[in-house]
Design a binder for these strands. Sequence first.
DNA 1: TTCTGTTTACCACCGC
DNA 2: GCGGTGGTAAACAGAA
Length: 400
Amino acid sequence: MLSAVKMEGHEHPDWSSYYGETECYTAAANMNSGLTMNSVSSYMSAPGITSTGHMNAHSYMNPVGVSQSSMSTGVSQSPGAVQAGGGMTGLSMSPISQPPYGNVPVMSPVYGQACSIRSRDPKPYRRSYTHAKPPYSYISLITMAIQQSGCKMLTLNEIYQWIMDLFPFYRQNQQRWQNSIRHSLSFNDCFIKVPRSADKPGKGSFWALHPDSGNMFENGCYLRRQKRFKSEKNSGSGDKEPGAKPGSEGGSVPSSGSDSPHSSSSSTSPPTSSADVKGVDLKPCRASPVRVPSPLAHTQHLFSHHHHHHHPLLLHEAAHLKPPDHYHPHPHPHPHHYSFNHPFSINNLMSEPQHHKLDPGVQYGGYGCPVSGALVAAKTGLDPMHTDTNYYHGVYTRGP
DNA sequence: TTCTGTTTACCACCGC
DNA sequence: GCGGTGGTAAACAGAA
């Protein structure tokens, strides 16, 4: 898995310098939720961040200025929730208050150097990390987006928004990566298309995770799948030809075992009912697909169970999700238990306040990784040095 | 017209 | 080298 962490050299050839320096691509994890979003300018100059030293004065917050104003709607509800942990208090986060995220307090990645005790040197960063590509694959990003949604399903556009809100990198070259997103959704069996309900017309279908794709990212590592998920129904001799996507059941040309790993059957018939989506009975949310009453409640619910190791994505539960109008903070009698202790787990991007007992002295930069050492340690009692620190350095530092 | 979704193709990287 | 995985580009069709 470690090797999966590529540096995206084509985007930024000198990543080594990124990590060689004290600057780090800090994940939202550092910021933990909670947060009170005071209006913040794109470049924070740190007022308010200092108490714990978790973040540095020059953290690059919300580079694009993602709807700061909207923050108040979804985020500020639990201002006190965060303060206790001391993580990122006073820092900004991307509100993601749009319907897709259900006011889930998802924070934008912070481009700054939380990883070092840098002085409040007013001098701007030498580099803006706005363009630093996250180490997550598109499949990972989609999976994370869907997972964090209340109804475990999102429209394409909502997925776009989630990604852009969380990763400023993706606010540029949208045509390129969005094409890849669409490609990933269509091509990968792990994503299933859920038709909109009649009472919720709109463009595009909802996308959800296949119920059986739960262990694609074991240990919560979202860097790369351990194995590709192939729908049994599709790959087997079942009712669908191999590779057929939910929306493409119709008699179509079998994939013919093309050499291309991307080859798949072709068909155009859209699913006629949600019950016929890859044999998965998923029902789209009636209202907003991911509206969540309480941002914290939702994130906590999703990402706070670190000591249990159930399959990360048990989407069959999604099939039983109540629509938002019946939604309550804990719709599942047995909430998901994500094994997200991995440094690159989503909960290191989006974590809840009660886990923010990070040692101010232990901070790392990087997506998810940065804090995870301490974060994981805090959560599991492990020595941070044995969690992700080595991992991080081993992967991200290019020694001479 | 734009967005969404599907498909094909090619390439790069990685592990075996 | 081969196969798997992932990223990108492009073409195309259909829906909103």
